[in-house]
């Protein structure tokens, strides 16, 4: 929205120039090797718009190595493959199950479990 009543003054933007040595005027050697630190969300949530984190209460899925208080990373964008660990809905309830086993039961696939975050301490 333009507002003619206020004179436009540009604020100086935060300086984001690479660090330059005050003595020599040359950039520090490390500057060229700077990278962003690892971001787990970026690494583990491949399809970020389809990924949800879900916490598990209880040990009822320990046969799938899913334990109490684990956090599941669930990707809804993936097509299921035989043997995938699926988060499914059965009778209005969430359930973890191996896709392709026990197919006689009816279920709706909610998403594919891609990682299980387990607190090891």
């Amino acid at each position: 929205m333009d507002s003619p009543t206020y004179g436009k003054i540009q604020q100086t933007s935060d300086r984001h120039a690479p660090e330059v040595s005050k003595q020599t005027g040359f950039p520090s050697a490390a500057t060229h090797y700077m990278e962003m630190p690892i971001d787990l969300h970026k690494e583990l949530a491949i399809h970020k718009d389809a990924t949800f984190y879900i916490r598990v209460d209880g040990d009822q899925w320990k046969q799938h190595r899913i334990f109490h208080n684990d956090v599941l990373i669930v990707d809804r964008s993936l097509q299921s493959r035989f043997g995938d660990l699926g988060l499914v809905v059965q009778d209005g309830e969430f359930k973890a199950m191996r896709i392709g086993f026990g197919e006689e039961e009816e279920y709706v696939l909610w998403g594919i479990i891609t990682y299980i975050i387990h607190y090891a301490r």
Binding site: Y53, I54, R55, V56, D57, Q60, H68, F94
Partner: peptide, 9 residues
Amino acid sequence: ELLKIGRSG
């Protein structure tokens, strides 16, 4: 506040 599933869900 993650979605909680299993025993409580």
